[in-house]
C-alpha cells in the first residue's frame, strides 16, 4: 500500500486513488504532418523505466483532482508530487 500525498487532502491510502499512467505526453498539434510511426509513438509507446517515473494520479475517492507524481519504480518511493501543468522536477536518481 502506497501512502500518496494528494496536493489538496494530504497523505491518503493508495486505495483512494486511481492511476493515470505516464505524465507529460502532449497531443501533437501538427497532426496532418505526422507519419504513421509518429502517431503510433504518441498513441502507444510509453516509457518503462527502472527508476524515476513521472506519472498521473487522481484522488478518485477524495477530492477527485488530478496531479502528477514522480515515483521510483523499484522502491515505490514517491519523490515528488506536483500540480498538473507544472514541469517535471529535476531529480538526480
Amino acid at each position: 500500500m502506497l501512502l500518496i500525498s494528494c496536493p489538496h487532502c494530504g497523505p491518503r491510502a493508495e486505495i483512494e486513488f486511481a492511476y493515470g499512467h505516464e505524465a507529460h505526453i502532449a497531443r501533437p498539434t501538427d497532426q496532418e504532418k505526422l507519419t504513421d510511426a509518429e502517431w503510433a509513438d504518441y498513441l502507444f509507446m510509453r516509457k518503462n523505466p527502472k527508476g524515476v517515473h513521472y506519472e498521473r494520479w487522481v484522488h478518485a475517492r477524495g477530492c477527485r483532482r488530478w496531479f502528477n507524481v514522480a515515483r521510483h519504480t523499484v522502491t515505490h518511493e514517491i519523490l515528488a508530487v506536483y500540480r498538473m501543468g507544472d514541469p517535471p522536477p529535476a531529480l538526480d536518481r
Binding site: 487532502c9 491518503r12 486505495i15 483512494e16 475517492r61 477524495g62 477530492c63
Partner: peptide, 10 residues
C-alpha cells in the same frame, strides 16, 4: 470532513 471509501462505497 473527508471523502473516502467505506465497505466499497464512496
Amino acid at each position: 470532513c473527508a471523502q473516502t471509501g467505506l465497505a466499497g462505497a464512496n
